[in-house]
């Protein structure tokens, strides 16, 4: 159990959260289509961009940091991948460069935090602007439109059949799950993972125990950037164009997903499965509100309220739960 998440009760809480949301929408007499296999697949597909981003964010948040640059990095990776294709490179090198662009910004974040000793909030706030600016310059402030043929299978990454069973999911969702397993393994069965929890829980203790704190921090942000890069490439697959204005504000969705999933902004806590469920809860709410026919502003209010409620509930449980 410990292998997957912080504690069984926490996990139960998150699944219960999903069930509760379904129940509420049921009670509100939402359109029956909300409960179909098709809608579920659609919502899972919509979870992917935030979900993959939340995997990296989970790592960073467990270590006691924060990464605000992810929204911009998604756009930058998306644009880079499109540009590579437009300039005639192969699909594989385009994907590779797109992912590495994300990792590069992550590396920069890590170095800024470690060598200039800038707090993560500020360092990544800076790169949020920088990455967005670069994306716009490279894309010449418009969208990059590589030919359909050059994208090959990438454009199918979020596509799925309407009338197949639930497990016939778009490949993007499987990629998210696979990366989730990878990050969970990194967190729980590597020394680096132990160090992540140690630094997030008490950085001074980690230093006292000989944990290479600076090196690890560079690692967290680079890995987070890498995963964000994947997210950007997937977004390109979904949009089929490189849009430098895409994913504005996505960092907040990603942080919210991680926090709903049990991540603590003071570090030391968080889980991969929790964050993925958190990301799913976000699209569950969006779709539910949509199918209720509620206008956009109402959706925003509901999601905002749910974030506050989820975190308050989690803290309440924590206060009582610690024996």
């Amino acid at each position: 159990m410990k292998f997957i998440g912080k504690s069984p009760t926490l996990l139960l809480g998150q699944f219960a959260g999903v069930a509760l949301i379904y129940l509420i929408f049921f009670a509100l007499r939402v359109d029956g289509a909300f409960f179909t296999v098709y809608t579920t697949k659609l919502m899972l597909a919509q979870t992917v961009i935030v979900g993959v981003g939340a995997l990296g964010m989970t790592l960073v948040i467990i270590s006691g940091g924060i990464d605000l640059s992810v929204g911009s990095v998604i756009a930058l990776s998306c644009v880079t991948t499109a540009l590579m294709l437009e300039n005639g490179s192969s699909i594989y090198s385009a994907i590779g460069v797109g992912i590495l662009t994300g990792a590069g910004v992550g590396l920069l974040n890590g170095l800024l935090i470690v060598s200039l000793r800038i707090v993560p909030f500020i360092a990544t706030l800076g790169t949020l602007g920088i990455a967005r600016g670069i994306a716009k310059i490279w894309a010449d402030e418009s969208t990059v439109n590589p030919s359909r043929e050059s994208m090959a299978a990438l454009s199918e990454v979020m596509a799925f059949e309407r009338n197949t069973p639930l497990w016939d999911l778009p490949s993007g969702v499987w990629i998210m799950f696979a990366l989730g397993v990878f990050v969970a393994l990194v967190l729980h069965v590597t020394v680096f993972g132990r160090f992540t929890f140690a630094i997030g829980s008490n950085e001074a203790t980690a230093r006292l125990c000989g944990v290479p704190v600076s090196l690890c921090k560079v690692g967290f942000y680079t890995l987070s950037g890498l995963l964000t890069g994947v997210s950007g490439v997937l977004l390109f697959g979904q949009l089929t164009v490189g849009d430098p204005t895409a994913a504005v504000g996505k960092e907040l969705d990603i942080i919210a997903a991680t926090v709903i999933g049990g991540g603590s902004l003071s570090g030391g806590q968080g889980s991969v499965l929790g964050s993925l469920i958190g990301a799913f809860i976000m699209s569950l709410l969006r779709n539910g509100c949509l199918m209720m026919g509620w206008p956009n502003p109402i959706q925003e209010i509901v999601i905002g309220a749910i974030i506050i409620f989820a975190v308050a509930l989690d803290q309440f449980r924590h206060r009582r739960g610690v024996d």
Binding site: A198, S201, N202, A204, T205, C209, G268
Partner: peptide
């Protein structure tokens, strides 16, 4: 509290970290 131990982590974790 501030440096010696990561109090949220387990006994075993604190003991073996180095």
């Amino acid at each position: 509290k501030e440096e010696g131990l990561a109090v949220e982590l387990s006994i075993s974790e604190n003991m073996t970290l180095p």
